[in-house]
Design a protein around this nucleic acid. Structure first.
Length: 490
RNA sequence: GGGCCGUUAGCUCAGUCUGGUUAGAGCACCUGCCUUUUAAGCAGGGUGUCGAAGGUUCGAAUCCUUCACGGCCCA
């Protein structure tokens, strides 16, 4: 154990004194009749002259001792309430016990009458109190709180104790996920769970985390997407399925990426990507209305209106408008690379044609998509699971949704032709051989599933963390993930 | 992977450019006073491996090198 600071030594001394008094500083139970909020309500609802007695419990957040009386605030999950301790009520010994051995951060249970102070605050006049849990480490400063982002992420518990707005962000996150679930449940979707440990990874262009099953002597991958399993369920006869859960991608950490993130995917038989766009708009608007009570949000200084319908712009047109480059006029990676260099773009010379299109999208188009926008109709090269447009086999029926300059969702009319799917996987295999480590793997069982027949289907995936960022106006994904990945320390 | 910035008391931060008594402030903490306070107040008290390791120097929180962790920007 590391050496104790002076402040910690003080607290350990107090702990020892409490034990010497024969008091358990960590008792197993507490009697509570009211939360802080309920106690306040009870007082407001009491008849004139009545002073309800309550038992409340919580963490001591401030203490103001004034000789023979003291005020303090305790906080529980419902909020704060003030308590008032007087020597002539408690007796000298008990009062001294509080003054001497209780610290900010301790959990305390109190029983007493409610009254209103001179300044109007509903307060418990304490008749009895108990130590519920002694805190051995001092809390951060009451006024500035905890600002050090490294400590905030590594010791999120401290962040949550002292930063109320952080608690609010994660409460909003929970309500967003709950609203998404409600929306899909009400639209006839079945929530399912598919494997996180997979013998083959797929459903996205990404590198996986690899692990090993000792008993089976088998390499397994943490899923990078739920897509291929969910489509197997459409083959199986479910018409509408969805899954909410963690995906894992072996990639860097930045403001919009955490290697472990929460995604939602749904698949809808007898629907195409146009239907899915309609549903996306409706869903995001529903969630915003349920959680925020409005369709107007502010994100990173921008006013954003989520009201449907959203713009739908072909990707090719969007890139041409922003860069002057029509990528179809440069069918080879080489010529497209030269065209990008001519407009001053800084790109990887070895990039594949698909990666070059992707870089045009990311660098020139995406940052400008502040209002909700669907970019539609993507090149087939970067979309190995999407169905070709009947009139243009170089393009697939795919869209991505952008809000606030962030990509929030990705969807297509699903490729359900098993022979075409095999060809796509083979093309991906060649890309992998050529050095694209994110290229898709051949999945024979998935092709077998498609070979039994999958109805025309629209599929969709969204990064929940990014939606939470938008709805809580946080510009770093780490501020919407309770325990973001940081490099191990110590 | 590259560039820039940060790391000083439990917390929030000065001090580093321009090296020089014993390293500072506020909150927190300790001692005393104070029975309706609320960033309570008054009087007194620094409780520190200046991220780590080397180096330069009579002398290093400060200058140099390397490393660790974090942030921002770029790839």
């Amino acid at each position: 154990m590391a050496e104790l600071s002076e402040l910690e030594r003080q607290r350990h001394l107090k702990l020892q004194r409490i034990r010497e008094k024969g008091i358990d500083p960590y008792p197993p139970r507490v009697e509570r009749t009211h939360t802080a909020a309920q106690a306040r309500t009870a007082f407001e609802n009491a008849r004139e002259g009545e002073t309800p007695t309550v038992k409340v419990a919580g963490r001591l957040m401030s203490i103001r001792v004034m000789g023979r009386s003291a005020f303090a605030h305790i906080e529980d999950g419902s909020g704060r309430i003030q308590i008032y301790l007087r020597q002539n009520v408690l007796g000298e010994e008990e009062y001294e016990f509080f003054k001497r051995d209780f610290d900010i951060g301790d959990f305390i249970g109190v029983e007493g009458r409610l009254f209103r102070t001179r300044t109007g605050e509903v307060t418990v006049e304490v008749q009895r109190f108990h130590m519920l849990a002694k805190s051995l480490k001092p809390l951060p400063e009451k006024w500035h709180g905890l600002r050090n982002v490294e400590i905030r992420y590594r010791q999120r518990y401290v962040d949550l104790i002292v930063n109320q707005d952080v608690r609010r962000v994660f409460a909003t996150r929970a309500r967003i996920i709950s609203a998404l679930r409600r929306f899909l449940d009400e639209h006839g979707f079945l929530e399912v769970e598919t494997p996180i440990l997979q013998p083959l990874y797929g459903g996205a262009m990404a590198r996986p985390f690899t692990t090993y099953h000792n008993q089976l002597h088998q390499t397994l991958y943490l899923r990078i997407a739920t897509e291929l399993y969910l489509k197997r369920l459409i083959v199986g006869g479910y018409e509408r399925v969805y899954e909410i859960g963690k995906n894992f991608r072996n990639e860097g950490v930045d403001q919009e990426h955490n290697p472990e993130f929460t995604a939602i995917e749904f698949y809808m038989a007898y629907a195409d990507y146009n239907d899915v766009m309609d549903l996306t708009e409706e869903m995001v608007a529903y969630v915003a209305q349920e959680v925020l009570g409005t369709l107007q949000i502010t994100y990173d200084g921008n006013e954003i209106d989520l009201t449907p319908p959203w713009s739908r712009i072909p990707l090719r047109q969007a890139i041409k408008e922003k860069t002057g480059i029509d990528y179809r006029e440069y069918p080879e990676a080489e010529s497209l690379y030269q065209a990008i260099r001519e407009i001053g773009g800084d790109v990887e010379p070895k990039a594949t044609w698909g990666k070059l299109v992707d870089s045009l999208l990311n660098n020139y188009v995406q940052p400008k998509l502040i209002q909700p926008t669907f970019l539609i109709d993507y090149p087939i090269e970067i979309s190995p699971l999407a169905k070709k447009k009947p009139e243009d086999p170089s393009t697939v029926e795919r869209f991505e949704g952008f809000i606030g300059g962030m990509e929030v969702c990705n969807a297509f009319t699903e490729l359900n032709d098993p022979i075409d799917q095999r060809e796509r996987f083979l093309a991906q295999g060649r890309a992998f051989e050529a050095g694209d480590e994110e290229a898709h793997q051949m999945d024979e069982d998935f092709i077998r599933a498609l070979s039994y027949g999958m109805p025309p289907t629209g599929g969709w995936g969204m990064g929940i963390d990014r939606l939470v960022m938008l709805f809580t106006n946080q510009t770093s994904i780490r501020d919407v993930i309770l325990f973001p990945l940081l490099r191990a320390k110590e």
